[in-house]
């Protein structure tokens, strides 16, 4: 970050972006929640520190950091913000959820094919044919490597 480019004004809270506010509230939220969790446990004494002391202390520090985030200069104003795209997260999550649901009833080979298809569909530049070929390749590769070569205790198919 090149500090000389930063407008003096952006060093203070007037220059905070929406994303900064989200960061601050999430950090403060985590901090307050963990202080509360700490208080609900035993704080203990200095001689014998209880289970709640560390959560409380870390929560307090996090809340302090939230304040510093608010008054400090914001890197958002100078650094390129990564663009938000929901396509990747949604498809990848769907693929992993599919793995969780299917691995036991269906077995490894069909599950991997489905996981591959779901995650590959995040990339619009891939043609259907190459996605299907990739799924076939991935599921046979995983079955051969993990089940037959490495002998992991996984069922290749449901029967």
């Amino acid at each position: 970050m090149n500090f000389s480019d930063v407008d003096e004004k952006t060093r203070f809270y007037k220059g905070l972006s929406a994303r900064d506010w989200i960061t601050i509230s999430l950090v403060a939220g985590c901090g307050v929640y963990s202080m509360w969790e700490g208080l609900s446990l035993d704080l203990g004494s200095v001689r014998r520190i209880g289970a709640g002391a560390f959560p409380f202390a870390i929560g307090a520090l996090l809340s302090t950091m939230a304040i510093f985030l608010g008054i400090g200069r914001s890197p958002e104003s100078t650094v390129d913000q990564p663009k938000i795209s929901l396509r990747g997260p949604v498809h990848i999550s769907a693929a992993m959820i599919a793995f969780m649901i299917l691995i036991n009833p269906l077995g490894l080979a069909p599950t991997i094919a489905i996981v591959t298809i779901l995650s590959a569909s995040a990339d619009r530049s891939l043609k259907l044919r190459s996605v299907l070929l990739l799924a076939l390749f991935a599921s046979s590769l995983c079955t051969v490597v993990f089940v037959f070569l490495l002998g992991l205790p996984l069922q290749p198919f449901w029967w």
Partner: peptide, 16 residues
């Protein structure tokens, strides 16, 4: 190798 062909495999490996 295009990234689109790589990352689905990585996801599968990570899951397994």
């Amino acid at each position: 190798v295009p990234y689109g062909l790589l990352y689905p495999m990585i996801i599968s490996f990570v899951c397994i």
